[in-house]
C-alpha cells in the first residue's frame, strides 16, 4: 500500500479535543462532524485540506480521549495518512481499525508543510519527493497492514468470517 500527497505539518501533543472537540460529539453524521475537524488548531484546515494530503505531526498525536470520531473525521476529509514521530495508543489502534493509514516515523519532524511525500506501508518507508530525503518508519506486523488494506477492521472481519 502506497500513499502520495502533500504534507500538512503540525506539532506535538495534538489531542483528540483539538482534532474534534467534545462539544460536537452529539452530532451523529460524520460529514457534519468533520466540518469541525482541527478547528481549534487550524481554522483553515477543513476549507483548504485536499483529499489525499497527508498529516505530518510531532510526538503523541491523538492523545486524550478514546473517541474514534477523531480518526473518523480525518478519514472523512480524505486524509491519506498520518505520519507522526509518535502516536497515543488508542488513536493509533482506532486509525488502523477504520482503515486510516498511520506510520510512526522518528525523522518526520524534518518534513515541512507543503512537501510532497510518499509512504510505503509494507516497507515502512517515507520518501520526501520535495527534499529528496528518505526516512525509515516503525514497521507494522502483517496482520495489522492487512486490516488497514482491507479498509478497516469491519471489512477485515467481514471477509475473514465469510
Amino acid at each position: 500500500m502506497k500513499i502520495r500527497g502533500f504534507a500538512w505539518k503540525y506539532g506535538d501533543n495534538i489531542d483528540t479535543d483539538l482534532i474534534i472537540p467534545g462539544k460536537y460529539l452529539d452530532i451523529g453524521d460524520v460529514r457534519e462532524l468533520a466540518r469541525h475537524a482541527m478547528e481549534g488548531l487550524d481554522p483553515d484546515f477543513v476549507s483548504k485540506f485536499r483529499p489525499g494530503d497527508v498529516i505530518v505531526a510531532g510526538r503523541n498525536f491523538g492523545c486524550g480521549s478514546s473517541r474514534e470520531n477523531a480518526a473518523d473525521v480525518l478519514k472523512e476529509l480524505g486524509v491519506g495518512a498520518v505520519v507522526a514521530e509518535s502516536f497515543a495508543r488508542i488513536f493509533f489502534r482506532n486509525a488502523i481499525n477504520i482503515g486510516l493509514p498511520v506510520l510512526e516515523c522518528e525523522g518526520c519532524g524534518k518534513i515541512e508543510g507543503g512537501h510532497e511525500i510518499e509512504l510505503d506501508m509494507r516497507s515502512a518507508m517515507v520518501f520526501n519527493h520535495t527534499s529528496g530525503s528518505v526516512y525509515r518508519a516503525g514497521s507494522l506486523p502483517d496482520f495489522i497492514l492487512d486490516i488497514v488494506e482491507a479498509g478497516g477492521l469491519v471489512e477485515y472481519k467481514k471477509k475473514s468470517r465469510r
Binding site: S66, R67, E68, A71, I90, R93, N94, N97, I98, G152, L153, V154, K157
Partner: peptide, 10 residues
C-alpha cells in the same frame, strides 16, 4: 485499557 468502538465491535 481503553479501546475504540471498532475494537469493541470485534
Amino acid at each position: 485499557t481503553g479501546v475504540g468502538v471498532t475494537d469493541m465491535a470485534a
